[in-house]
Amino acid sequence: MANMFSKLQDHVASLEDDFSKFYDKGNKAAGTRVRKGMQELKQLAQDIRVDVQDKKNAD
Rank of each mutant, 00 (worst) to 15 (best):
F22V: 07
E16I: 06
A29Q: 13
Q46E: 10
D10V: 07
A58W: 12
K55W: 05
D17Y: 03
G31W: 00
F5Q: 12
D47V: 05
N27W: 02
I48C: 06
V34I: 15
Q39P: 00
E16S: 14
A30T: 04
N57Q: 14
V12N: 01
E16M: 12
S14A: 15
K36P: 01
S20N: 08
A29N: 12
Q53S: 11
G31E: 02
D18E: 15
G37V: 01
K25N: 15
D10Q: 13
D54P: 00
H11I: 02
F5K: 15
A30P: 04
D24A: 11
G37S: 04
R33P: 00
N3T: 12
R33K: 15
Y23P: 00
H11S: 11
I48T: 05
N3H: 10
D54W: 03
A30I: 01
S14P: 03
V52S: 10
F19G: 00
Q46I: 10
K56N: 09
A58C: 03
M38H: 05
L8Y: 13
D47I: 02
L8G: 01
G26A: 04
A30V: 03
N27H: 10
S20W: 05
Q53F: 08
D51W: 03
Q53A: 15
R33H: 01
D51E: 14
M38A: 07
F22E: 05
F5N: 12
A2S: 07
K28Q: 11
Q39F: 07
K42R: 09
E40C: 02
V52K: 14
D24Y: 06
D54M: 12
D51F: 07
A29S: 12
Q43C: 03
H11Y: 11
A45Y: 10
D18P: 01
S6E: 14
D54V: 04
K25E: 15
A13Q: 15
V12R: 08
F19E: 00
L41H: 03
Q39D: 10
R35V: 02
I48A: 14
V50E: 09
N27I: 11
D10F: 08
L15H: 07
K56E: 13
G37K: 01
G26D: 05
R35D: 03
V52Y: 12
A30K: 01
D51A: 07
